[in-house]
Design a protein around this nucleic acid. Sequence first.
DNA 1: GATGAATGAGCGTTCATTCAT
DNA 2: TATGAATGAACGCTCATTCAT
Lengths: 201, 201, 201, 201
Amino acid sequence: MKITDNAKRKELTQMRQKQILDVAAEVFSKNGYARTQVDEIANLAGLGKGTVYRYFKDKKNLFLSVADKGIENLKDLVLEAMAKEKEPLDKIKKAIEAYLKFFEDNSSLIGILIHEQSEFQKRIQKRYFDHYYEHINRMEEVFRQGIAKGQIKKIDVRGAIGILTNMLNGLVYMWQIEGRKYPIVERLPMLLKIYFSGIVK
Amino acid sequence: MKITDNAKRKELTQMRQKQILDVAAEVFSKNGYARTQVDEIANLAGLGKGTVYRYFKDKKNLFLSVADKGIENLKDLVLEAMAKEKEPLDKIKKAIEAYLKFFEDNSSLIGILIHEQSEFQKRIQKRYFDHYYEHINRMEEVFRQGIAKGQIKKIDVRGAIGILTNMLNGLVYMWQIEGRKYPIVERLPMLLKIYFSGIVK
Amino acid sequence: MKITDNAKRKELTQMRQKQILDVAAEVFSKNGYARTQVDEIANLAGLGKGTVYRYFKDKKNLFLSVADKGIENLKDLVLEAMAKEKEPLDKIKKAIEAYLKFFEDNSSLIGILIHEQSEFQKRIQKRYFDHYYEHINRMEEVFRQGIAKGQIKKIDVRGAIGILTNMLNGLVYMWQIEGRKYPIVERLPMLLKIYFSGIVK
Amino acid sequence: MKITDNAKRKELTQMRQKQILDVAAEVFSKNGYARTQVDEIANLAGLGKGTVYRYFKDKKNLFLSVADKGIENLKDLVLEAMAKEKEPLDKIKKAIEAYLKFFEDNSSLIGILIHEQSEFQKRIQKRYFDHYYEHINRMEEVFRQGIAKGQIKKIDVRGAIGILTNMLNGLVYMWQIEGRKYPIVERLPMLLKIYFSGIVK
DNA sequence: GATGAATGAGCGTTCATTCAT
DNA sequence: TATGAATGAACGCTCATTCAT
């Protein structure tokens, strides 16, 4: 009985946490950090302001928690997608697809992960890149295998990955700004086409 | 004499305006809109706070003026660069170069034009794209010429330009975040290589 | 069985009460009323916050209960000490000693009885003086006896007692502020010497 | 003209400062630090809240400014009073009188200087005693002269001065609590009588 | 016109109190 | 009965904007 009680309580607590994080992601993404009011998050979550502060030390902490969780999930999905394929080019393709898919499913994180890093440059970037590099590093290996197999040109791998990332982030960001009018994966074929073989005949 | 006086006055007024805009660009870019205080702009401009308000209705208006002016200049430079070349691919190349160069020379506008659009999504975007489309439209023509001449693949032109823009914005933005440690044009060759012929052998 | 149960329960209840009062005295004295959090009291007492509220209506009531109990004890000790002696001057001496001793043993009440009265001026003062006057009145009799016996000068008795009280409170208070570095009764001889015969030769 | 302007402005600024300090002394003394709202001070001073913050960094700083200024004045008055007399006992008498007079004229400082030290023990006490010792030290000399002249008993001088201070602070404090119903100097004769020659015949 | 002192709406955060379990 | 999660009123402080000089 005690066990059940504790379990229930813990579950409830985690649900609340998630609930707050979800709402917060939405609101932070919509308004940006500075214009977001903790009150709005609390209200939209159907909770009192004090409750939000019970779960997160302060506004900053709440924001960073949202970001952290998002980054974690993104990284996992991308790594998982890459793991499913054998061939380097297929791995890259799947990674890109997963990346786009993630932001399609979690569009409330676009503002936070792509946009709002400047608010907490030091902190977020560190976390962002710590995790990020995990799949960047994995991606690098894949590129090198592709080069070894003669499938990819002998290029500056880090630079090429950087450019890929920029393309993706830019794409996602514009998609968001323009109102998310179409499934973003629609853009995948053209993006791959250009990234793989360029626009020049 | 009156004329001279008026001329002088007008000149002074315009100098003040420009001075405020320059400082504001710097400060808005450094801190973001919300964290920027009008006080700081006034002080750095060597003016009283009231004077800033004499030249710009309010903080929002000042911000948008900075953005407007930046966009205008960017557009002019890109169009100018394209005009200097004959061949479509060269035009594209020069346009890209001009784009990067602009943000290298006006890095204080990166935050404002690339980053802070969310603050005033509706307003800025409108202005951004109104002006933007002027060279997007021009760029479209260039792409079509390239296709007609058999130099560029038969692709969705708008999409390809969108992807190019994303690559560029992402590149500029990351360069800024990472501390502007190298001349950004350094990245031009690789970017062109990938955009023109892809990474696949 | 019922009886035993009730007895046990009552005992437990009283123990809890006392426990809370003791902790509360400590914390109120350390931090002052306003800076004391009910949470801290509950935690230090090893109880839930709700439990504290079961025993005391609210924070104010808890504070006043602490004060009440302290005053009661102080009064009892002083009266008791006076009762043990025959001669007026000895009674006064013992009363003073008991007063100092009380705050030495209950230094957590210094802040509350001597210091924090301003928080609840009306209420505390009433209680303070209601009880206080009980030994003030007794003391007055003692002074009058001393005067009758020709041992004490013919002075304004109430005034003299007031001054004595001030000396004592000031002494205790300063001793507390300075860190309670020595047994306060050490100061008794000099205090008596001055109060009894002054500094002038 | 400029000079006059500056002078006027400076004067105005100092008046505002004083005005805020005076109101703040009143309110802090009445409510204690924690229960005092900056808003109340601002309103009573006929100013906006922001104006108070223009003159004082924060609530704490405002409080300490009130205390500082009070201590300074108190010290000056006491030293001045002592300087006017020749004989040690007269000096002591005048010092005591000045001390009481000060709190009679500045009763709003009683709460702050005598009572609220606990809020900022470290800071206030340091300042309190730094300044305080200036007249304590002077007083010590006076006592020693009195002893040398055979007018004062050979006692522990520091202890005797401590007891005097306690008597005074206690007297002032009780006078305040009891509602300041009579001129406090009325108590001077009895206090001197006891402090100088005791209650015992 | 130029200034910066004055203002107060607005927001982050705390904590006494309540109440469902 | 005991608990501590939830609450929201309250308050310190900031800063865009105004306006008297």
